[in-house]
Design a protein around this nucleic acid. Sequence first.
DNA 1: AAAAAAATTGCCACCGTTGGCAACTTTTTT
DNA 2: AAAAAAGTTGCCAACGGTGGCAATTTTTTT
Lengths: 361, 361
Amino acid sequence: MSNLMQKQSTINDVARIAGVSKRTVSRVINGSLSVGESTRLKVEKVINELKYAPNAQARGLASSRSYLLGLIYDNPDALYLDDVQRGVLEVCSTLGYELVVHPCRYQSETLVNDCLRFMRRSKLDGVIVLPPVSESETLASALKESGSPYVRLSSVALDSQEHIVVSDDRAAAAEMARYFAQLGHEKIAFISGPQRYKSSTERMEGFQLGLSAYGVKIPPQMILEGNNSFETGIECARQLLQRDERPTAIFANNDQMAAGVLKVAYSLGIKVPDELSVAGFDDNMLASRVTPALTTIRRPVRQMALLATTKMIMSIEQNHKAALNVAAKVAPTLVVRESTGPCKTAVVANNAAALVAGRRS
Amino acid sequence: MSNLMQKQSTINDVARIAGVSKRTVSRVINGSLSVGESTRLKVEKVINELKYAPNAQARGLASSRSYLLGLIYDNPDALYLDDVQRGVLEVCSTLGYELVVHPCRYQSETLVNDCLRFMRRSKLDGVIVLPPVSESETLASALKESGSPYVRLSSVALDSQEHIVVSDDRAAAAEMARYFAQLGHEKIAFISGPQRYKSSTERMEGFQLGLSAYGVKIPPQMILEGNNSFETGIECARQLLQRDERPTAIFANNDQMAAGVLKVAYSLGIKVPDELSVAGFDDNMLASRVTPALTTIRRPVRQMALLATTKMIMSIEQNHKAALNVAAKVAPTLVVRESTGPCKTAVVANNAAALVAGRRS
DNA sequence: AAAAAAATTGCCACCGTTGGCAACTTTTTT
DNA sequence: AAAAAAGTTGCCAACGGTGGCAATTTTTTT
């Protein structure tokens, strides 16, 4: 078993072969301006030949930079996380950073310490914080105080332009309200997410506000709270749909719960969208896979991730003015699919019509 | 804006205050045996008082260890990746490692270089490689040659016990075959994944083998190749279901494609499972959310991740005998839900019955 | 053409830790 | 009690880069 692992080439090797000092090689690597054109070419050639790659640790030690970014989150939806991660990685790989993922518990008392320790241990250059952890103000101020770059993703502008990317969930929910109202729905239900999360309250309030513009009001018994899971979507839907007077339209705080509603409607024999309109929020992969395909709000998650990462790397690289020019707000949009339709007035009338049709044959 | 970030204390501070040399402090940190009891206590006390935490980069530079693990993959299903990641992180956080995620392109000519550069750049202690990248033998041998610990996840035992965790997809597919046969299906179709992936061929061969035990054979025109996406699932399903003689059961290489089949069946008015049985593979979140819920094969993805990570950390820490004791094989299992049922003989007969019923009313 | 300015390059210290080896203590052996 | 062995501890040189500053070369100015 020959272990002939060719030893790593170092900056010294490059320098020696290229016939320059290692300081110059270092300059070439870091794109310093004051390097002669011919020298640069010569060095680059050797770098390629040797397949030389700088040692991140040594680099970090000397410059107190690690080219490592952190992603902090607490048990998010798999599809959401995947979207974010893809976006972040896209920018990272372009700009030469790597990504360290770090789950943690939002509710934990040691959250702040955990995160700070994580940053120190791995000497991260900066962190991107996902909701709901991003809503912790104690963490945010600890981060600010520690002086490390960070960007938060959220539905509310709870930090300065430099440190946040928000999606206007409130406006999006209002748009959904408008859409529902224009379809003629009046008996509308809302399945909210946990009220301790900003995204949940934003969406609920936006929806209610949007509806009120059309004179529609959701009575309290038509508002149920789930925890954003498919399972609680099912629970809430059951409660809503087995009543004597059931809603003609249900808006759920996310696609997972909306999928739960679809499931219950199917098992109760309620036709979607003829007898019931259902809409979700997120537009993740699930939305287009279920039957009927979900009308939903598309959150530009990946774009948010892109913006956040760009913003952060810019401020890491001291490009603060540029960082401020990166957009800090994105607008989710309505995506209409098959699960929503005009309100066919009373369900009872509908059933009667069916009966008539049946007899006729 | 006071930037009062208290500067990090170093090993020198600890040494000075404790009145020992920094070498001794280093020994205490690393749990070296030859440190006097009283000295250790004294040093530990100072460490706590100063809240000293060793600098990972300096440590890495000096010892060539980083406590960083890498996860290499190429554009996997979001749900699969999430499962794996969760499993890996679980072990990591317990054992004090962090995880760096690194997407790459399996087909790329520079794959091997990209990965090696990634490992070097971040001085990873080891990498976990996901399919299909895990099937690249050139990468595997480069990894082996470079001497860095690695573990591959795959459906085939293509490496030594120490370097792989496999799921027996072949046997699982055979079990599905058995199940189909026992339900009485004979006109069975298979939607395969890309034939260049081992997991695809394993599942297909296992399925065919299992079927042949019951004297059932799948004719070539009943085997279509998708690329594991929902969309190609739809395409293949359309081809299969719009024929004069359509299958009574379809087995898809994964849940995504099976969901596509469900969609097409619904739009063609084909009842599942009464007129058509559909099954997938993976048992990811999607399987239970679609309607009807998918019968599928549950792959213990998270468990594989757990095993792989444990195995790797053990071999990093030179605990080779222990690493070999970690299981290297897991068995996926059949999960029966609503999308499969007994074959109601001929579809034509079925239609005839429906006609009769229609006339009767 | 000499002086001044600018661009390019090299030298050396240092980042914070670990490893090798020597030195010093303490315990055990003879 | 001296010698040998074992247990502790300290010194110094890496590890592989970057930063400051001085030295050198080239360009521009007077």
